[in-house]
């Protein structure tokens, strides 16, 4: 049983590695995009810092979060946003276009996991700028808070970051999978992106209860951004950690089920 499974994982890993290496090899093609990404990233960063300055000009904490705690959150928000922009969003956009134009057929006739192929088919390196900004801001925020992080904190952070990314990925995949029924669906991703950009950069704990529920389970931003930030700011408890793992598993399983459900009904763009 373990043999074929390992074999599959090895195959999948090789495919992912090839896509990544192609993204790197073709970096030069993205030179101007990189410049744009830096400018865009810096503008977003300054706007967010200004917003924080306005808030903390009035108060010394927001729902229990200090200025530096929120800096960490802004950093995590950048980091996750960068990961989404690096591979998830461009791949999903390409997939939806492929469904519309019929080139998605070629993804399905390849002897590999169709969900994997669809999900990693475009790697857009300029998004690494956001990842780098995110890491920088997280380090800045953690440094500003004072007090050392234990290895356990960092491990919990990485674990919850992974779970958050998986949850967001599954959510976006499920949204994009609806393109099998509704041909023009690009707007759905735009709505998600703006929700992520606006609501995602605040701790969900400051929102009223109904909105918090919505942002946790319907559009799972809470576990993606707030929970990893909690790991770095000494707020994370065991229940939330387990919740993050469980939520990621449930979202992933559901998205994968939905994916294969949709494939069985795939009719393709006509000849």
């Amino acid at each position: 049983m373990a043999g074929p499974l390992l074999d599959r994982v090895g195959h999948d890993a090789r495919i992912v590695a090839t896509y990544i290496s192609l993204g790197v090899v073709n970096l030069v093609q993205y030179r101007s995009d990189f410049v744009l990404a830096v400018v865009n990233g810096l503008i977003t960063l300054v706007t967010q810092l200004l917003a924080l300055a306005v808030v903390f000009g009035q108060t010394s904490e927001l729902g229990g979060w200090s200025r530096h705690d929120l800096l960490v959150l802004v950093g995590v928000h950048f980091l996750i946003g960068g990961l989404i922009g690096l591979v998830i969003r461009p791949s999903m956009e390409t997939m939806m276009e492929g469904i519309r134009l019929g080139t998605f057929d070629f993804t399905l006739v390849k002897p590999a996991d169709s969900q994997l192929l669809a999900s990693v088919q475009v790697v857009r390196p300029p998004a690494l700028v956001d990842v780098a900004i995110g890491v920088g801001v997280v380090v800045w925020g953690v440094g500003g808070r004072g007090g050392a992080l234990s290895a356990g904190d960092v491990a919990l952070f990485l674990l919850t970051l992974l779970c958050g990314t998986v949850t967001i990925y599954s959510f976006v995949l499920a949204l994009s999978t609806m393109a099998f029924w509704f041909v023009r669906l690009d707007n759905v991703l735009a709505i998600f992106q703006s929700l992520f950009g606006q609501a995602g950069r605040w701790p969900v704990t400051i929102f009223p209860g109904w909105l918090r529920l919505l942002l946790t389970f319907a559009v799972p931003l809470a576990f993606a951004v707030t929970v990893p930030s909690e790991a770095l700011t000494g707020r994370l408890d065991l229940a939330t950690t387990l919740g993050a793992v469980a939520l990621a598993a449930v979202f992933f399983a559901a998205a994968r089920w939905f994916w294969f459900f949709a494939l069985r009904r795939y009719t393709g763009a006509s000849a």
Binding site: L22, L101, D105
Partner: peptide, 27 residues
Amino acid sequence: LIMGQRNQLQWDIPVLDSYRLNQAVFR
């Protein structure tokens, strides 16, 4: 499956890179 009206090679990268991808996918 080869379809004259649709292409499967990746648009933005050199042909050889698309072939490398096929190499990984088809082992």
